[in-house]
């Protein structure tokens, strides 16, 4: 498969600290790529560079879509709108006071209100707005079905259980029609059953499901069960450098990876999963 996102020599320094050091990897289209590594390895910093929160010190982030986008030079909201990269955060950032359905509708804002004139027409119900709104609700409904929250569409998002909020956040990101979905520790705090549901959801998102297009995924995750089960390709970071890159099987047998994890004192983190 063709690379969708090519990270080349990405370096990010904060004063004297080099959080990411000359990192290169690729996320291929139609695959789930996981970025793993011990705490402080620079994973979230990589995400923040990709989604425009940080401007990298050097290096390039090329997204192969249409004419290609240089993400390292784009502001955050244009990365979402034009390059179509969506992301979620380690902590949940739903609009807690809005309903579940409204959260999914807000994500389709650009389709519903591409400019001020359309927005004003929409206020008066003109300009074919009703049709657009119906299409948006239909799409939201498909996602609600996919994440099993149809019955709670009109509840405030903040009232959902934690696992459901996680899934809703992913569905909301997907409602922006991304080509690349970046998930920062989506399984954090989930119980085993919830992480199974999450794994299934992510696999469905990758391959596309009834009426919904597929999407490539870039994932940061500490839950090795989830990572090993769903990833097509894993990149391992340690102290801002890439120490391994390959299939789950290759990575889990890489002595450097085992050393990095054991070196951190997390003895049970990799070896237990390596057999899986």
């Amino acid at each position: 498969m063709a690379p969708l996102l090519a990270v080349r020599d990405l370096t990010m320094r904060f004063g004297g600290l080099t959080a990411v050091d000359a990192l290169s990897f690729e996320a291929r289209e139609g695959e789930i790529t996981a970025v793993i590594g011990p705490n402080g390895a620079g994973k979230t910093t990589v995400f923040n560079c990709i989604t425009g929160f940080y401007r990298p010190t050097s290096g390039s982030l090329a997204l192969a879509r249409g004419g290609g986008f240089a993400l390292e030079r784009m502001p955050g909201h244009l990365i979402a709108r034009r390059a179509r990269v969506a992301r979620t955060f380690q902590n949940i950032r739903l609009f807690a006071g809005m309903t579940v359905l409204e959260n999914l509708m807000v994500a389709q804002h650009n389709m519903l209100m591409p400019n001020v004139a359309r927005g004003l027409l929409a206020v008066f119900g003109l300009g074919g707005h009703a049709k657009l709104e119906r299409a948006a609700i239909e799409k939201a409904r498909l996602w609600l079905d996919a994440i099993g929250l149809t019955a709670r569409a009109d509840d405030p998002a903040g009232a959902l259980p934690y696992g459901a909020q996680r899934r809703l956040e992913i569905a909301r990101a997907m409602c922006t029609d991304p080509v690349l979905l970046c998930l920062d520790e989506p399984a954090a705090g989930l119980n085993p059953r919830e992480s199974d549901e999450l794994s299934n959801l992510l696999r469905q998102i990758r391959s596309g499901m009834a009426g919904l297009p597929g999407c490539s995924i870039l994932l940061i995750e500490h839950d090795m069960g989830v990572v090993m089960r769903i990833s097509d390709h894993i990149v391992v970071l340690d102290h801002g450098r890439k120490i391994s890159d390959g299939t789950p099987d290759q990575v889990s047998h890489d002595p450097k990876v085992i050393a990095a994890y054991l070196g951190e004192g997390d003895e049970d983190e990799i070896p237990a999963e390596a057999q899986a």
Partner: peptide, 26 residues
Amino acid sequence: TPLGRAMRACEQDLKMAGLLGIDTDR
């Protein structure tokens, strides 16, 4: 309306609204 939804989204989390493609300044 979509404009109202965008306003409420900006009210709750300006940065996240931007990441969902809403032009928050506008």
